[in-house]
Amino acid sequence: MGLSLDIDLLRSFVMVAQTRALSRAAAHIGRTQSALSMQMQRLEQVLDQPLLQRTGRGVLLTPQGERLLVHAQRILRCHDEALADLTGKGLSGTIRFGCPDDYAAVFLPHLLRGFAREHPQVLVEVICAPTPRLLEQIEGHAVDLALISLADADATDVIRREPLVWVGCSGTDAAAFEPLPLALSHLDTLDHVAARQSLDSVGRAYRVAYASSSLAGLTALVRSGQAIAVLTQTAVPADLQIVPASAGLPPLPAVGISLRFDREQPSSLVAAFALHIRQQLPAL
């Protein structure tokens, strides 16, 4: 009998590749870390090739692991599509999902890939906008559900909490400028309000050098070294840095991430996507 690739092993491998940490992957698939580690060893034995490189900060894919990931994702997609089609158990339809720019960049790839594996016939249309605009779209039934940020004190049904942080460009000292140049979202967004309130509370002079809902625009100005931005900690790009407390900027609050629906009783399709988000988002 020839070699074969077990679907469960491939599914576990893809989760490890996505999370880059055995502990997070184990939490996602409901296994212990030691059981998941044994699965990965078994897969490496089947292929007689190293797939993962353990590091102090998690795991990296070897070149062989990167090649397997491409095949594994295609195999799982075909497997799940066939199962959904032949059993009639897969959901189908379209979901209109609202999400702020920073969460879309960090969380959305993982959330959509995972949901697509379970429900390959579902189409998720994504609308990116700041929380105040998303709430307006929820009210107008332009989206079915939205992932939103709320001030921590006002947040109910919180799925995850994220600290807001000051963000600057490595090797520059924009935090020392007077007045402090800021790159912020629109006036009614949490980062804008939190930045101004915290600076006002300590009497620090500032000016808003750039205001936009575009995450790309904000980070571009920070990369130029001409301004400081406020982002959720998870959304800080790898080439930018969190401004240290030693720079003298006042602390910022945390925000709560929650879901809002356009109706009290969402459809089974929307409810399934919401449940998927609730289960996956805390571990990302």
Score class of each variant (00 low, 15 high):
A247T: 07
V14N: 02
Q226L: 13
L52T: 03
R196P: 03
S23V: 14
G65W: 03
L9E: 11
S23C: 01
S37W: 04
F107E: 13
T94G: 05
M15P: 00
L259D: 03
D200C: 03
R223A: 14
Q279Y: 00
A27W: 01
A84Y: 03
V59N: 05
D101I: 00
L182A: 09
E178T: 15
P181T: 09
P179H: 09
L112T: 13
Q233K: 13
F107Y: 15
I127F: 08
A26Y: 03
L51C: 07
A17Q: 01
L5D: 05
A229D: 00
K89F: 08
L218C: 05
L111E: 10
M1R: 13
A227C: 13
R96K: 14
V270S: 06
I257Q: 15
C128L: 11
L10C: 04
Q226I: 00
V236P: 04
K89I: 05
V255N: 02
I159W: 02
A247G: 03
D200F: 06
A105W: 08
L123V: 15
V208Q: 08
E125K: 13
Q121F: 14
G58E: 06
I138T: 10
A283H: 13
T32A: 12
V243D: 06
W166C: 09
V193P: 00
G93S: 08
G225Y: 04
L60R: 14
A245W: 02
Y210T: 01
L36W: 01
R20C: 10
G256K: 03
R77T: 08
P251C: 10
C128Y: 00
V59L: 08
K89C: 09
H71W: 05
R20V: 01
L60E: 12
A205G: 08
V158G: 05
L147H: 09
F261S: 08
A155F: 11
A195C: 06
P266S: 10
G217L: 07
S268K: 08
L51P: 03
G88Y: 10
L184E: 05
Q121I: 00
T234K: 07
G2N: 15
A211I: 01
I159C: 04
P63L: 13
G256T: 08
S34R: 14
A235K: 05
G98E: 08
I95M: 06
D154H: 12
T131G: 09
A176F: 02
P179L: 11
V122R: 06
D85T: 15
A194Y: 04
S246M: 07
L108H: 11
L69I: 02
D144V: 07
R77I: 00
Q45Y: 05
V230R: 13
W166H: 04
V167K: 02
S34C: 02
D154Y: 03
L68S: 06
A21C: 10
A35P: 04
W166T: 12
R54S: 13
L284Q: 12
P50S: 07
I277D: 01
L111V: 11
S4P: 00
L61F: 07
L184P: 09
M38G: 08
F107W: 12
L215C: 01
L231G: 05
M15T: 14
D157T: 08
L36V: 11
P282Y: 04
A254T: 14
